[in-house]
């Protein structure tokens, strides 16, 4: 198996807050190479924590995570994450941002430049290479971030609610963009979201998580070819089921949050 998360538990202990927070509990999942996996879960259930552990920013309290059989020990360019928040370096131009990671891959000056431009045009930002991030729209920033991630040619692409701050119209075109990039590159992608439509549009498989602590609640494999019509009856049925699952997670969460 390409990526394996085995019985992972993550507990946060903050010194001020006596009570430890269990963000992820005994969670296992595996991802075959080339799969587009969407992880759906209610807000605050531990999705980012899970991705952070796969990316290597956080260590599991219990359990282990293997990439191609090797345990993950820290962050690295083989698993690139598109973060929930903006992380383009504001003091660099878009092109400089993309070049930043390429510099550590031992490419020559020209190759770096060529690669950077290639990925810039892959996301349709050819004309904006010399712009600073703050001069771009929210959607363009997301694309630039995607280009920076893809340029490293990672084995695994992690995306943490990349479209949560994007307006509905840009979202549609970005979804199509992400899909076409996946089709071209056939990368393994783990895509975290709490938006059911995004998951239905992109995923080969959807994993629904419970409210905190995150555990696998349900798994749905979608065989329908992409791009998908989300208004087709099959998709609508699926959506209804997923809404129900998520609503249950939320209800569970409320129950947990207001004891007695």
């Amino acid at each position: 198996m390409f990526l394996e998360v085995q019985n992972v538990t993550k507990v946060f202990r903050s010194s001020e807050n006596e009570k430890p927070i269990v963000a992820v509990k005994d969670l296992s999942l595996s991802v075959p190479r080339g799969e587009f996996l969407c992880i759906l879960g209610p807000i605050g259930c531990g999705k980012s924590t899970l991705l952070n552990m796969i990316a290597g920013f956080e260590r599991p309290t219990k359990g282990r995570i293997l990439l191609e059989g090797k345990p993950i020990t820290g962050p690295g360019p083989d698993r690139v994450m598109v973060f929930q928040e903006e992380t383009l370096f504001p003091w660099m131009t878009v092109l400089e941002n993309i070049r930043f990671g390429l510099r550590f891959k031992g490419l020559s000056e020209e190759e770096t430049e060529e690669e950077a431009r290639r990925y810039l045009s892959l996301v349709g930002l050819e004309k904006f290479g010399d712009f600073r991030p703050h001069e771009l729209s929210g959607g363009m920033k997301r694309k630039a971030e995607l280009a920076r991630a893809l340029a490293l040619n990672p084995k695994l692409l992690l995306m943490d609610e990349p479209l949560s701050s994007i307006d509905a119209i840009s979202k549609m075109s970005l979804l199509q963009e992400i899909l076409s990039i996946w089709e071209k590159s056939r990368k393994t992608i783990v895509y975290v979201t709490h938006n059911i439509d995004e998951a239905l549009f992109l995923a080969d498989r959807i994993i629904v998580l419970t409210a905190r602590p995150a555990q696998v609640k349900r798994e749905v494999v979608i065989h329908n070819p992409k791009p998908r019509d989300l208004l087709g009856s099959e998709m609508i049925d699926l959506k209804r089921q997923l809404i129900e699952e998520l609503a249950q997670s939320h209800a569970l969460e409320e129950h947990v949050l207001t004891p007695g």
Binding site: A55, F57, G74, P75, R79, F83, T87, F100, L152
Partner: peptide, 10 residues
């Protein structure tokens, strides 16, 4: 967050 991003970029 920027340092984390840089680490990830290798």
């Amino acid at each position: 967050r920027y340092v984390n991003a840089a680490k990830m970029l290798g």
